[in-house]
């Protein structure tokens, strides 16, 4: 089961202290009111390796995205978010659009090994990146250990927040395979559940401990 400790094919993760990994409230406090959305976009899109996109648009442009290891080409207007490109253009709908402004985490994917709010990243900026969505986590019908643990602890109700929580938990366990309850809470603070599955989710994450059951 060692290979299932990471998203398949993904590099060992280096989760930065931005995006969903950081406590929502402390994050809001640290960046102030007006900088929230801009802050997430800027922080979640490191430009070190990716070529800076040339001035494009406003009409549709052709782009290529690498999603769960497969290359997909599509046409989008430059203003289209990665989330909307996945859901509306590619019919990859596991990530959900809930707040659409970087608060709730339902759209969380792992991008270049870091958890990212895909509602707050432009599709054109995601080119050349390794995009891992919830759909890439399950091996056929075999659930990832974190998915299995959440199933057993009944950590889903309506299930709309669930894929985001799973991806955040995967991000956490890659960075820290043996989180304390406090660390797990903080790492999952960027995700919101309305039905109230938090306690079940926390129990599941603490049981999995980095992908090995125990």
């Amino acid at each position: 089961m060692a290979s299932s400790e990471e998203p398949r094919g993904g590099p060992p993760a280096a989760i930065e202290d931005t995006g969903p990994g950081v406590s929502r409230r402390s994050f809001l406090k640290s960046v102030g009111v007006t900088g929230v959305v801009a802050g997430v976009v800027a922080e979640a899109a490191p430009t070190a390796q990716a070529p800076a996109p040339a001035a494009v648009g406003p009409g549709e442009v052709s782009i290529a995205l690498t999603i769960n290891g497969a290359k997909r080409t599509l046409k989008v207007e430059p203003r289209v978010t990665l989330l909307d490109a996945l859901r509306n253009r590619l019919d990859i709908t596991g990530l959900k659009r809930v707040c659409d402004r970087g608060t709730c985490g339902a759209c969380t994917a792992v991008v270049d090994g870091r958890t990212a709010y895909t509602c707050s990243m432009l599709a054109i900026e995601a080119q050349g990146k390794d995009i891992r969505t919830i759909e890439g986590l399950t091996d056929g019908t075999v659930l990832h250990p974190i998915q299995q643990a959440i199933l057993e602890h009944d950590g889903t109700m309506c299930g709309f927040c669930t894929p985001g929580f799973v991806m955040s938990a995967v991000g956490l366990l890659q960075k820290n395979p043996t989180p304390t309850a406090e660390q797990a809470r903080e790492a999952l603070d960027g995700n919101i559940c309305r039905c109230g599955t938090y306690n079940r989710l926390l129990d599941a994450v603490l049981q999995v401990k980095g992908g090995s059951r125990g």
Binding site: G94, I134, E135, L137, T138, L143, L151, D154, P163, V166
Partner: peptide
């Protein structure tokens, strides 16, 4: 456990 848990957890 929920019958539809796996589907919800896998995004399907």
């Amino acid at each position: 456990t929920r019958l539809d848990g796996a589907l919800k957890l896998s995004g399907h």
